[in-house]
Design a protein around this nucleic acid. Sequence first.
DNA 1: CTCATGACCTGTGCGC
DNA 2: TGCGCACAGGTCATGA
Length: 304
Amino acid sequence: MPELPEVEVVRAGLEPAVTGAVVRAVTVLDERALTRHPGSGPHFEAVLTGRTLRAAARRGKFLWLPLSPGEHSLGDEALVAHLGMSGQILLRSPGAPAERHERVRLDIEHPDHGELAVVFADQRTFGSLAIAAMVATADAAPGGRGAFEPSIPSQVAHIARDPLDPAFDDRRFRETLATRRSAIKRVLLDQSVISGVGNIYADESLWAARIHPEALASDLPTRAVTRLLNEVGVVLEKALAEGGTSFDAQYVNVNGQAGYFAHSLNAYGRTGQPCPRCGRPIVRVSFMNRSSHYCPHCQRPRAR
DNA sequence: CTCATGACCTGTGCGC
DNA sequence: TGCGCACAGGTCATGA
């Protein structure tokens, strides 16, 4: 479940279940789930076993669980997770049968809730788990939602803060846009500029702000940028409140349940259907090896 | 540095 | 019924 709202649903579901829990056992069923881990499957299992999970944090689409110190760790470390295109993190009963695309399982024990299985399942294997060192944040603010310390996993350090983060720097975002001579949608998808926005919410935010996805970022008037940043926040918050977007059973919370935001989409996936604002058909075009959906009437190339 | 493209995977649905 | 193709929520490496 890939974009910010879906990942936040997972983080929030994980938080009460894993905070304070001890990792009793780790099983790596498919090492492709560890492509970002600097070590083998057995190494991952050995390093993680016995550690206590201290929180559930997120920045953009990256999740991490800060870890208690390990035997050989030099500084703070975290278990980092990215769901890629099709990853899921599920909470199951101990000994629950393997999920169809299960890649890694943690057996944990929580002081209040007892034993639980944390299952990482991922059809397309673009997602991954890893153990990474924590490094200081550049702005000394907490690393992200659910993080209490001003640190971030090294693998996530290059990711910008997301628009739901109180420490998101609006001014810097505006300044960056002004220098980018490339399509605004490409910039919205650049996780080093603004994180958490993927293909669905980029299309939805641009539709709401009435900006053409291929309008040049540097050409956008100040008021268009203001509108866009506001709409990104509104769209992400609304999607989060509705449990995220689920087109199929792939995108679910930690209990396997789907979100409802698919019913609230105005542009994404609505090719040929009437624009909810003007009634003319939404079009789909190929862009960056994926799809853009927009209303050619409401979203003109030269934004106002 | 910025920008654009393709690689990495599995699965589903469509037209022929 | 079967086959090939297009497409799917993301990130990263590698060129120009």
